[in-house]
Amino acid sequence: MSPVQPPPKYLKNIINNAKKSHQQSRSLYYDAWIRLKRNKAAMVGLFFVLILVVVAIFAGVLAPHDPYVQNLEYRLKPPTAEHPLGTDDYGRDILSRIIYGARVSLMVGIISEGIALAIGVFLGALAGYYGGKVDNLIMRLCDIMFAFPELLFCIGIMFALGPGIYNVFIAIGFVGWAGYARLVRGQILSLKKMEFVEAAHASGAKDFRIILKHILPNTLAPIIVMLTLSIPGAIMSEASLSFLGLGAQPPMASWGSMIFDGRSYLRTFPWFSIAPGIAIMLTVLGFNLFGDGLRDALDPRLKR
């Protein structure tokens, strides 16, 4: 681990851009939106993301059946009009379970990354603003987080917290903060020396206020991009944990656990395992496309 690693290159351009336009940040986002709208792939991504959100919120209305009601006489049935994706090994409607599973994926994306963001921004801001020993300690902690095998760390925290979907969110969030911390720190280091911050200092503003009011808003653009591109990772981590049986608890429907449940029937009832896999793929694809587009939009140098 290098003592100070610069943020990834793609973020650097965004950072520079944000710095340049810190005075007129509204126009930065407006411009970005215009650029984003022109990017077809990003719009497709946004569409997928919006579908996920709508499905997750209105799962109760959209699902044709109760995802938890079992019908043991009607197990593992192929798709019919009644059950468009067939039934699982308890006779539950697979489509309804996938619809409810969207909730878990959306929540894992929002809550886990929210936790990671909160910890990361807080520690990154501390490190960047105060520097010295605080900085050193926090950056070493980041190095440790990066070098620690991620899934193992997640599993360790999961075991410590005990089973339950909220503990999955916490575990994934707790493992993923170091990237944000590094990003925020790097920006604060450079912003600190800029005129407007020094002006705020001179006018007697408190440290906390300076960080909150003047510095953080200027780090927003790269953070948004990083967040969008990190959500798929969190969704994937939940799926992996559920695949290992450590994620969502039954009867809760989670895409990862559905893949796991369905894999023994892969040859006879393939849709059982394939359908949730496709759901994950489209969701993650959506976030990736949207995130890419967002990145390009916030970095005008890549303009066509």
Partner: peptide, 10 residues
């Protein structure tokens, strides 16, 4: 992108 988006175990 789909390659990135599909879970490895799947």
């Amino acid at each position: 992108l789909m390659g990135i988006s599909a879970p490895v175990f799947w």
